[in-house]
Design a protein around this nucleic acid. Structure first.
Lengths: 259, 259
DNA sequence: GAAGTTATATTATCATACAATATGGCGAAA
DNA sequence: TTTCGCCATATTGTATGATAATATAACTTC
């Protein structure tokens, strides 16, 4: 009697099509499986296909597969047990601050709910970081911030170059807080800025950029003055403004899902 | 001419002594190497010993070693490149919200600076989470919160059982915020509560526990009432109180380092 | 001395075998 | 019939050895 208790789920469909002869690379396999899990292909607590199946599905050796699974396990997505299999852990166990996870999440498309969560956590952490930065920033750090404000003011910014400077300043401030946890939120800031590019709108509204520049300058000057409350307020202002503009862009799209 | 460019650092000393015959287990190896890196045994950008050396130092096969390194890489601690070696990444790249990292950090002993960082990030995130919970909590979630408050009020709590309920309530609130990032801060809350146990002080000051209980009840009632501002304020109060008590305990110790 | 080429050390992947372990089935005893 | 304990088996965990890929360093050529 050969009863095979098939409790497992169906194959993971790789998003990346694999042309014959081309190797996928471990990174891409991790991404494919990570995205699959994030997308909800496997309910919480479900078993992934057995190692043998995954090996043949991706055309990789067991060594590579196991390193992939270890990577996912380290990020809290799955947990493996001898004789049982590899289970998908509950979402609350996933490390949402992991930059890979955030990247995969963006790959799935940007929904309003997720975007909103990004802004909420930024609004909680970044003003606090600014306040601490006002109290603790070194002179070197302040110099770098001011250099970035100068960068902001350079003419001829594209949305891409502008966002680059934007990100750099926010990271600098987070680091100047002296709190390693606040700096670790950098991955989220980056994700939020990345999200500004999923739509192809070529809006480079110079007036808005100039406005944003001065808002950012206000943060830096408050930090320079050691005014924690003002720094927090200015940071809040910047993030709220970003959220508002983002909302406008989204309203133009027909659905809540872009990209 | 046999010149060996020894750019690498010395062996990782495992904190866990390895009695003959006993296997360390992959988990412990990950911990040993992780702690070693967190302790600063390797400067930012330094190369770990080569695979062969690590294998013999820990007495493990290459298979296991590589899975260990993959785990550390997934948490942002290291990065490996062919022909180059495995480099320790900059601290800003480490995922500080990872529960393993937090645990290893506690293993190193609790210094004031780190403890302070924990409270700072909690003060930034948890009040915001409470405010959102006041707006979004489901009835089921509220029921669980109230059950936890009842738990608080049970007599005969040890510091351990009290902390357990404490943690559960904070996690419930974080989850009720509906924001997955705020829930991911749970690892930090847990670490902060863990830190309450590194000193062996048997202080079970019943008055203080009762006080803390009512402070927590205030959060829940604000959430129940849908009063976001009050919920945030009550949460702030709870965390500040915890910080104050913690500071008192620390002041009793001669040094800033415990455990 | 500079640029291109080759050699080599190190990680990346593959293949195979064996060990450890949790699950489910079987059987014995109550 | 139910419960407990033993055992077979499937699945992940570890070990070993070999080959591939690749970045650094040494070397050669101009």
């Amino acid at each position: 009697m050969m009863i095979v208790a098939q409790n497992r789920y169906r194959p993971i469909r790789a998003t990346v099509t694999r042309t014959a002869g081309t190797r996928m690379g471990q990174e891409q396999i991790v991404r494919a499986m990570g995205v699959s899990i994030l997308r909800g292909d496997y309910p919480e607590g479900a078993l992934l296909p057995a190692e043998g199946d995954l090996m043949s599905q991706f055309g990789i050796s067991r060594t590579v597969l196991r390193e992939v699974l270890k990577t996912l396990a380290a990020k809290g997505l799955v947990v493996s047990k001898t004789r049982v299999g590899t289970k998908v852990r509950a979402q609350v166990d996933w490390n949402m601050f992991d930059s890979d996870l955030l990247g995969w999440r963006l790959d799935l498309g940007m929904d309003l709910r997720f975007l909103n969560s990004l802004y909420e956590i930024r609004l909680a952490v970044e003003p606090a970081a600014s306040a601490l930065a006002a109290l603790r920033r070194s002179n070197e750090s302040l110099t770098r911030m001011r250099a970035l404000i100068d960068e902001f003011r350079q003419p001829g910014h594209t949305r891409s170059t502008f966002a680059e400077v934007d990100l750099a300043l926010h990271l600098e401030i987070a680091a100047a807080s002296g709190n390693p946890f606040m700096r670790s939120v950098g991955a989220i800031i980056e994700a939020a800025l990345m999200a500004s590019f999923v739509d192809s709108s070529p809006v480079t509204d110079q007036g808005r950029l100039a406005h944003s520049t001065e808002d950012h300058a206000a943060i830096v000057e408050a930090i320079a003055a050691g005014d924690a409350a003002a720094a927090a307020k200015a940071m809040t202002q910047v993030i709220e403004e970003g959220r508002k503009n983002r909302a406008l862009l989204l309203a133009r799209g027909s659905e809540g899902k872009i990209g």
